[in-house]
Design a protein around this nucleic acid. Structure first.
Length: 173
DNA sequence: AGCAAGATCGGT
DNA sequence: CCGATCTTGCTG
Protein backbone atom coordinates (compact mmCIF):
# COMPACT_ATOMS: atom_id res chain seq x y z
CA UNK A 1 0.00 0.00 0.00
CA UNK A 2 1.00 3.57 -0.58
CA UNK A 3 2.15 4.98 2.74
CA UNK A 4 2.03 8.58 1.47
CA UNK A 5 -1.75 8.36 0.95
CA UNK A 6 -2.49 7.72 4.64
CA UNK A 7 -3.38 11.06 6.23
CA UNK A 8 -1.08 11.82 9.16
CA UNK A 9 -1.45 14.66 11.66
CA UNK A 10 1.30 17.24 11.40
CA UNK A 11 3.27 17.49 14.64
CA UNK A 12 5.82 19.80 16.28
CA UNK A 13 8.63 18.55 14.03
CA UNK A 14 6.82 20.22 11.13
CA UNK A 15 5.59 23.35 12.91
CA UNK A 16 8.90 24.24 14.57
CA UNK A 17 10.61 24.79 11.20
CA UNK A 18 11.14 28.31 9.89
CA UNK A 19 7.98 30.01 8.64
CA UNK A 20 9.47 30.31 5.14
CA UNK A 21 9.46 26.49 5.02
CA UNK A 22 6.13 25.94 6.77
CA UNK A 23 4.03 28.51 4.85
CA UNK A 24 4.56 26.98 1.38
CA UNK A 25 4.69 23.55 3.02
CA UNK A 26 1.11 23.91 4.23
CA UNK A 27 -0.24 24.14 0.67
CA UNK A 28 -2.22 21.00 -0.12
CA UNK A 29 -2.33 19.95 3.53
CA UNK A 30 -5.78 19.19 4.93
CA UNK A 31 -7.21 21.59 7.51
CA UNK A 32 -9.63 19.53 9.59
CA UNK A 33 -12.01 21.35 11.90
CA UNK A 34 -15.01 20.20 13.92
CA UNK A 35 -18.08 22.23 13.00
CA UNK A 36 -21.08 21.12 15.01
CA UNK A 37 -21.00 17.32 14.87
CA UNK A 38 -19.18 17.19 11.55
CA UNK A 39 -15.50 17.40 10.71
CA UNK A 40 -14.89 19.63 7.71
CA UNK A 41 -11.72 18.69 5.83
CA UNK A 42 -10.44 21.27 3.34
CA UNK A 43 -7.12 21.52 1.54
CA UNK A 44 -5.15 24.69 2.14
CA UNK A 45 -4.72 26.75 -1.04
CA UNK A 46 -3.20 30.06 0.05
CA UNK A 47 -0.81 31.09 2.83
CA UNK A 48 1.31 34.03 3.92
CA UNK A 49 4.39 34.19 6.16
CA UNK A 50 4.93 36.75 8.93
CA UNK A 51 8.44 36.50 10.25
CA UNK A 52 9.86 37.84 13.49
CA UNK A 53 10.22 41.21 15.18
CA UNK A 54 12.13 42.76 12.26
CA UNK A 55 9.29 42.15 9.78
CA UNK A 56 7.25 45.37 10.05
CA UNK A 57 4.20 43.60 8.63
CA UNK A 58 4.31 41.06 11.47
CA UNK A 59 2.26 41.92 14.55
CA UNK A 60 5.19 40.77 16.69
CA UNK A 61 7.23 43.74 15.44
CA UNK A 62 5.20 45.85 17.89
CA UNK A 63 6.34 43.67 20.76
CA UNK A 64 4.82 40.97 22.97
CA UNK A 65 1.36 42.07 24.09
CA UNK A 66 -1.69 40.14 25.28
CA UNK A 67 -2.80 40.07 21.64
CA UNK A 68 0.44 38.78 20.13
CA UNK A 69 1.49 36.50 22.98
CA UNK A 70 0.61 33.28 21.12
CA UNK A 71 3.05 34.13 18.33
CA UNK A 72 5.92 33.93 20.80
CA UNK A 73 5.02 30.37 21.81
CA UNK A 74 6.23 27.18 20.17
CA UNK A 75 5.32 26.04 16.64
CA UNK A 76 1.87 24.50 16.27
CA UNK A 77 0.17 27.02 18.54
CA UNK A 78 -2.84 28.82 17.05
CA UNK A 79 -2.78 32.62 16.82
CA UNK A 80 -6.21 34.13 16.18
CA UNK A 81 -7.02 37.83 16.09
CA UNK A 82 -10.04 39.98 15.31
CA UNK A 83 -9.89 42.72 12.70
CA UNK A 84 -12.06 45.41 11.12
CA UNK A 85 -14.73 44.74 13.71
CA UNK A 86 -15.86 41.71 11.72
CA UNK A 87 -13.33 39.02 10.91
CA UNK A 88 -11.25 36.43 12.72
CA UNK A 89 -7.85 35.66 11.18
CA UNK A 90 -6.49 32.14 11.59
CA UNK A 91 -2.72 31.78 11.94
CA UNK A 92 -0.40 28.84 12.58
CA UNK A 93 2.57 29.73 14.77
CA UNK A 94 5.92 28.36 13.59
CA UNK A 95 9.52 28.07 14.82
CA UNK A 96 10.46 27.78 18.48
CA UNK A 97 9.57 29.74 21.62
CA UNK A 98 10.48 33.44 21.56
CA UNK A 99 10.99 33.46 17.78
CA UNK A 100 7.64 34.98 16.77
CA UNK A 101 6.54 33.71 13.37
CA UNK A 102 3.17 32.71 11.96
CA UNK A 103 1.42 31.59 8.81
CA UNK A 104 -1.83 33.36 7.92
CA UNK A 105 -4.08 30.82 6.21
CA UNK A 106 -5.75 32.94 3.52
CA UNK A 107 -7.67 30.29 1.62
CA UNK A 108 -8.80 26.69 1.44
CA UNK A 109 -10.41 24.86 -1.47
CA UNK A 110 -13.64 26.63 -2.47
CA UNK A 111 -13.17 29.45 0.04
CA UNK A 112 -11.17 32.50 -0.97
CA UNK A 113 -10.29 34.90 1.84
CA UNK A 114 -9.07 34.58 5.44
CA UNK A 115 -12.23 36.11 6.88
CA UNK A 116 -14.51 33.83 4.91
CA UNK A 117 -12.79 30.63 5.87
CA UNK A 118 -12.92 31.33 9.60
CA UNK A 119 -16.60 32.16 9.29
CA UNK A 120 -17.22 28.84 7.49
CA UNK A 121 -15.15 26.82 9.96
CA UNK A 122 -16.47 28.67 13.04
CA UNK A 123 -12.96 29.63 14.10
CA UNK A 124 -12.96 32.44 16.66
CA UNK A 125 -11.14 33.69 19.74
CA UNK A 126 -11.87 30.44 21.59
CA UNK A 127 -9.16 28.80 19.43
CA UNK A 128 -6.51 31.28 20.59
CA UNK A 129 -3.46 29.45 21.96
CA UNK A 130 -4.78 25.99 21.10
CA UNK A 131 -2.18 23.40 20.05
CA UNK A 132 -2.68 21.97 16.54
CA UNK A 133 -0.65 18.87 17.38
CA UNK A 134 -3.01 17.73 20.17
CA UNK A 135 -6.38 19.50 19.80
CA UNK A 136 -9.43 17.28 19.42
CA UNK A 137 -11.37 19.83 17.36
CA UNK A 138 -8.78 21.22 14.94
CA UNK A 139 -5.74 19.74 13.23
CA UNK A 140 -3.85 19.71 9.95
CA UNK A 141 -3.16 16.49 8.07
CA UNK A 142 -0.67 15.46 5.40
CA UNK A 143 -1.66 12.79 2.89
CA UNK A 144 1.38 13.30 0.69
CA UNK A 145 -0.28 15.57 -1.85
CA UNK A 146 2.14 18.22 -3.15
CA UNK A 147 0.41 20.74 -5.42
CA UNK A 148 2.31 23.10 -7.72
CA UNK A 149 2.29 26.70 -6.52
CA UNK A 150 3.52 30.23 -7.12
CA UNK A 151 4.64 32.96 -4.73
CA UNK A 152 3.93 36.68 -4.71
CA UNK A 153 3.79 39.73 -2.48
CA UNK A 154 1.74 39.76 0.70
CA UNK A 155 -1.65 41.45 0.72
CA UNK A 156 -2.58 44.57 2.68
CA UNK A 157 0.84 45.37 4.15
CA UNK A 158 1.82 48.47 2.19
CA UNK A 159 2.64 50.25 5.46
CA UNK A 160 5.53 47.84 6.09
CA UNK A 161 8.32 49.72 4.33
CA UNK A 162 10.88 47.46 2.68
CA UNK A 163 9.04 44.43 4.07
CA UNK A 164 5.94 45.01 1.95
CA UNK A 165 7.59 43.56 -1.16
CA UNK A 166 8.78 40.26 0.30
CA UNK A 167 7.43 37.36 -1.84
CA UNK A 168 5.98 35.65 1.21
CA UNK A 169 2.54 34.72 -0.11
CA UNK A 170 1.95 31.34 -1.71
CA UNK A 171 -0.97 30.18 -3.84
CA UNK A 172 -1.67 26.78 -5.43
CA UNK A 173 -2.06 26.83 -9.18
C1' DA B 1 -10.95 58.20 28.74
C1' DG B 2 -10.41 58.97 24.06
C1' DC B 3 -8.61 57.93 19.62
C1' DA B 4 -6.77 56.06 15.25
C1' DA B 5 -5.66 52.09 12.64
C1' DG B 6 -6.24 47.60 11.02
C1' DA B 7 -2.78 40.66 7.62
C1' DT B 8 -11.17 42.18 5.18
C1' DC B 9 -15.39 41.90 2.64
C1' DG B 10 -19.45 43.12 0.13
C1' DG B 11 -22.05 46.38 -2.06
C1' DT B 12 -22.27 50.72 -5.09
C1' DC C 1 -14.27 53.17 -3.82
C1' DC C 2 -16.46 53.30 0.63
C1' DG C 3 -18.81 51.90 4.86
C1' DA C 4 -19.41 48.42 8.48
C1' DT C 5 -17.86 47.45 13.14
C1' DC C 6 -14.85 46.74 17.35
C1' DT C 7 -10.54 45.27 19.52
C1' DT C 8 -6.10 46.69 20.60
C1' DG C 9 -2.51 49.61 22.07
C1' DC C 10 -0.96 54.10 22.65
C1' DT C 11 -1.42 58.80 24.52
C1' DG C 12 -2.54 61.98 28.02
Amino acid sequence: MDKSSVPARLDSRFYTQDVLEVAPGLLGKILTCKVGKEYLRLRITETEAYRGTDDLACHASKGRTPRTDAMFRTGGTIYVYYIYGMYWMFNVVTSVENDPQAVLVRGVEGIYGPGRLTRRLHIDKSFYGEDLSVSQRILIEDDGYRPPYVSGKRIGVNYAGEWKDKPWRWTVL
